[in-house]
Design a protein around this nucleic acid. Structure first.
Length: 918
RNA sequence: GCCCGAAUGGUGGAAUAGGUAGACACGAGGGACUUAAAAUCCCUCGGCCCGAAAGGGCUGUGCCGGUUCGAUCCCGGCUUCGGGUACCA
């Protein structure tokens, strides 16, 4: 019988759906295992072959774990709110809900054809009210909580209010936007509006005037991870800094825990490193500098307090709140001109001009608290308002930026650490002996830093401090297609809806552009207010809102009483294996961890990290093909001959090229202008050129999984995607090699049929040699799956089949079927039933490796002389090294190399190698 | 600039407690079967050299050096490519 993958795959996909083969429920009799894919954003372009790579890997692992006796939760859903659907709506007028629905249907049909073992009864969509009810609920919880640094967890804002009423800020250590000090009397004397303003300083979800990334083309603000090189990640539009009132999440409150938590996770080192850098912990000191002729003290942050004797000037950021105060009257015009010029520069220009030194003197002086020296205060945009205190002490001798600034303005450069050549450049390294530094002289840099921490604290000049690069996440977007905020405004004070008013549903609109006043689309909706007429927030939540806790919702997707029931959560706990792209390292994967830790503090869930193990699949690039048209003609010349003509390179659809050879008829049919194309062939073939590029429509190198499924079957697609190379590596898609795995499947299939094409397996007992081959394969495949080396387990199957030859014994083929089933579920399910089983192959158990079959009693030693392999000698195992040595040296082949002389040394590793040193 | 990671045939890639480099597959060439094609099967394929052949020798995992009986693997120094990040004090 022929391997008819088309009928067979359709048949089993229908059957699995009918039998609900992959549905799972809480089952305390079995250990759980949770395998999760990053759910896709359903874009209009559909899936290309790159998208399913991670899904296939996680599906193999899920099926493997299921066969090993685990109760496996393997769900799928859609991250359905987002910018592209809305941009598309602006262009076409189609409602995002409609296009999203269509795209989801397309994604689903493409995924179904690949034979994934998802439990679709648990599907979630972030844009559905039943789902985003819990996104809104979590937001309200954040609004209602603050972060207590003393207990190191989120606590109810009510307890903070009670504390303020009784003691003011005395004894409070909470994460906040800026430190506040007030008494209970003050608090009690304030009205509600003033109190709420103060509370915004502590809430984990809060509103604040803040510098934001404003993208005019998109008409919205963007989070830091949505901006790269001063351009929006989506669309590549310029982004400028602007101060605006926005909703934010106090992610920074969790910075220490987000950092420490990484150590316990089984994530790749590179990914953890990206997160560590993004969180950016630096330990240093806060120091206050007196200002000449003022009561005020200028606060700075430095990681190099040891260099304080080398401070020759101070710099504050243009946005620093004391710029005006510190500016003397005769410097006023210059400073204002500088501020104006700085404001105009876009983020992109700032980045492009990092080498250019600019700044202006304020006319004020600070006093070095250690040396007592008078030092000028400058304003420059190389100091950022958002980091540290927005002011620095400048040590030009030991900081390259300060050095450039000092050189430009002719300021003093005093070396305080030995080393480097101060005439040419600053010496930034943290090693060497201190000089010119009074009490620090002679100390090592590291010792000096520690001593200064003590000195600064002892003299009351400041204290040790830890700073993080991580910023609070801007949480509002001036868009339509996102979750509405469950808040309304009364007297300009944001007030939360109560939990029973959720979800606050997104109302329909007909226009998706900002209003003429530049307000978000929701401002157009006349009914967008509470029953009492108080207006709702018109911004919506950003993309990461809906994706931050979706993995929890899968545990209990239909629960209308809670995000997730305690029962479901304590059983499924957290994700054991998360598979997805590395591009989410500083976005989703940070926010999700934050969100999870917050819910953990609330006691809603039982694990404080969401994703125990994480695997990043690589990107699949496209492989483009080219044809070469002789300029001015409709004649095309093959690759090897193109140098003889003046040609023009044209992208050609990779689907009409096979092994870089063009299908001429298909090419003529491809586009009308090529209908009469002529060709200059080499060896009767037209050979195309190729290049590795991004997979995109305009390069004609998009390979659609449907096409592969149609022509080779889903099992071949699954296996080939894994065979392509290591999962975590980026690699180009190349359909050329696909015949190899397809051939393997046909060959495997044919083992079950005799010459007359009847299903036929032998009941004969397997030989020791056959068992050895089988168990060698079991061992290899099990190890590979556990290590995610799917690419190396496929050769193991191929070798197994080659070594077995024509063996058609049930005792060998049946376990092989199970072994193979995670990779190629359809063909193995069919064979499993032909073998006489009634239940799905999913109910089988994965074959155990039995070491007894692999016991060897002799070994063919490679014998090398001075490390160079010369011949092989088969010797029994278990004999002594002396016996091995004697046997080898007696061999005529060895005597040829020793030439009768006794070797200097013989190294024997039993079962591995014999090396003779002459 | 700083921090990670990588480099192996015509191609994708195997191989690490340091022990036969190039598994497996693609591709190419040759052959068998066939009226023919498809399908299937067999042989050869890193480079250089000796040999009619069988076979044999040298060399070879980006470059230079080190440790070792032995290095694709460990150490030091480079080169190139990829990723992250950047006036973060």
């Amino acid at each position: 019988m022929e391997y008819n993958f088309k009928d067979l795959e359709a048949k089993w996909q229908a059957e699995w759906q009918k039998q609900q083969t992959y549905k799972v429920d809480v089952d305390s009799s079995k250990p759980k295992f949770y395998v999760l894919d990053m759910f896709p954003y359903p874009s209009g372009a559909g899936l290309h072959v790159g998208h399913p790579l991670g899904y296939i890997a996680s599906d193999i692992y899920s099926r493997y774990k299921r066969l090993c006796g685990y109760n496996v939760l393997h769900p799928m859903g859609y991250d359905a709110f987002g910018l592209p659907a809305e941009q598309y709506a602006i262009q076409t007028g189609q409602h995002p809900a409609d296009t999203t629905e269509q795209n989801i249907a397309r994604y689903r049909s493409q995924m179904d054809k690949i034979g994934f073992s998802y439990d679709w009864s648990r599907e979630v969509r972030t844009c559905e009210p039943g789902y985003y009810k819990w996104t809104q609920w979590a937001f309200l919880q954040m609004f209602g909580h603050f972060y207590n640094n003393l207990t190191d967890k989120a606590e109810s804002i009510d307890s903070l209010v009670a504390h303020f009423a009784a003691h003011g800020t005395e004894g409070v250590d909470a994460a906040c936007t800026e430190p506040l000090v007030f008494t209970a009397e003050e608090w009690n004397s304030w009205d509600e509006k003033k109190r709420e303003e103060v509370l915004q300083n502590y809430r984990l979800a809060f509103r604040a005037d803040t510098m934001v990334n404003w993208c005019a083309e998109l008409g919205t603000v963007l989070a830091n991870d949505e901006v790269k090189d001063g351009l929006s990640v989506r669309g590549g539009f310029p982004v400028v800094q602007r101060k605006m009132k926005q909703w934010l999440l106090r992610v920074t409150a969790y910075a220490p825990r987000l950092l420490e938590g990484l150590d316990k996770l089984e994530w790749s080192e590179s990914l953890k490193e990206i997160q560590r850098n993004w969180i950016g912990k630096s330990t240093g000191a806060q120091v206050f500098f007196d200002i000449e002729g003022s009561e005020k003290k200028l606060e700075i942050f430095t990681t190099r307090p040891d260099t304080i004797y080398g401070v020759t000037f101070m710099v504050i950021a243009p946005e620093h709140e004391w710029v005006k105060e510190l500016t003397c009257s005769d410097a006023q015009a210059d400073v204002e001109a500088y501020l104006e010029a700085t404001k105009k520069r876009s983020e992109r220009e700032r980045i492009a001009e990092t080498k250019r030194v600019s700044g202006v003197f304020t006319g004020s002086y600070a006093i070095n608290p250690f040396s007592g020296k008078r030092i000028p205060i400058y304003v420059s945009d190389y100091v950022l308002a958002g980091y540290g205190t927005g002011a620095i002490m400048a040590v030009p001798a030991h900081d390259s930026r300060d050095y450039a600034f000092a050189r430009h303005f002719g300021l003093d450069i005093i070396p305080v650490v030995e080393g480097g050549n101060i005439e040419v450049e600053s010496y930034d390294a943290k090693e060497g002996k201190l000089i010119n530094s009074d009490i620090l002289n002679g100390l090592d840099v590291k010792e000096a830093i520690v001593k200064m921490w003590d000195e600064i604290e002892a003299r009351g000049l400041g204290k040790r401090k830890v700073n993080y690069r991580l910023r609070d996440a801007i949480f509002s977007r001036q868009r339509y297609w996102g979750e509405p905020f469950p808040v309304y405004y009364k007297d300009d004070v944001a007030r939360p809806l109560s939990a029973d008013q959720l979800p606050l549903e997104l109302p329909p609109v007909s226009e998706f552009t900002p209003t003429s006043q530049g307000e978000p689309p929701l401002a157009r909706v006349e009914s967008w207010h509470t029953a009492e007429g108080y207006p709702y927030e018109t911004s919506t939540m950003p993309g990461f809102a809906g994706s931050s806790a979706y993995y929890l919702r899968y545990m209990d997707p239909h629960n209308s009483e809670a995000l997730v029931s305690t029962e479901a959560n304590t059983y499924w706990r957290n994700v054991d294996l998360y598979v997805g792209g590395i591009e989410h390292a500083t976005g989703h994967l940070i926010y999700s961890r934050f969100w999870n830790k917050f819910l953990f503090d609330l006691g809603v869930i039982c694990e404080d990290e969401p994703f125990r193990k994480l695997v990043n699949q690589g990107m699949i690039q496209g492989r483009s093909n080219f044809v070469y048209r002789i300029v001015g003609t409709n004649k095309f010349v093959s690759l090897g001959l193109k140098e003889q003509y003046e040609t023009q390179e044209i992208h050609v659809d990779v689907n009409i090229v096979k092994n870089d050879v063009l299908d001429l008829d298909a090419f003529r049919a491809w586009r009308p202008e090529f209908r009469d194309a002529e060709f200059v062939l080499e060896n009767g073939k037209y050979v195309c050129g190729w290049a590795i590029e991004k997979m995109s429509k305009s390069m004609f190198n998009v390979v659609n999984p449907d096409y592969i499924v149609e022509n080779y079957g889903a099992d071949t697609l699954r296996m080939y995607e894994m065979f392509l190379g290591p999962l975590e590596q980026s690699k180009p898609w190349d359909t050329n090699g696909i015949d190899g795995v397809h051939k393997f499947l046909r060959k495997f299939w044919s083992r079950f049929f005799d010459k007359e094409d009847n299903f036929c397996v032998s009941e004969e007992a397997p030989t020791p040699a056959e068992l050895k081959i089988l168990h060698k394969t079991i061992k290899k495949v099990r190890e590979d799956i556990e290590n995610f080396s799917f690419n190396t387990s496929i050769p193991a199957f191929m070798i197994c089949l080659n070594e077995l030859g024509v063996c058609n014994k049930r005792a060998i083929l049946e376990p092989l079927c199970v072994l193979l089933s995670p990779f190629t579920p359809h063909i193995t399910e069919e064979l499993w039933h032909l073998l006489g089983h009634e239940d799905s192959i999913c109910t089988a158990s994965y074959p155990e490796f039995n070491a007894d079959y692999l016991v060897e009693n002799s070994f063919e030693y490679p014998v090398s002389f001075n490390g160079k392999m010369r011949f092989k000698k088969e010797l029994p195992l278990g004999i002594s090294n002396a016996e091995i040595e004697a046997a080898v040296l007696a061999d005529p082949a060895a005597q040829k190399w020793t030439e009768g002389k006794a070797p200097r040394k013989v190294i024997i590793v039993p079962g591995k190698i014999i090396n003779i040193v002459l």
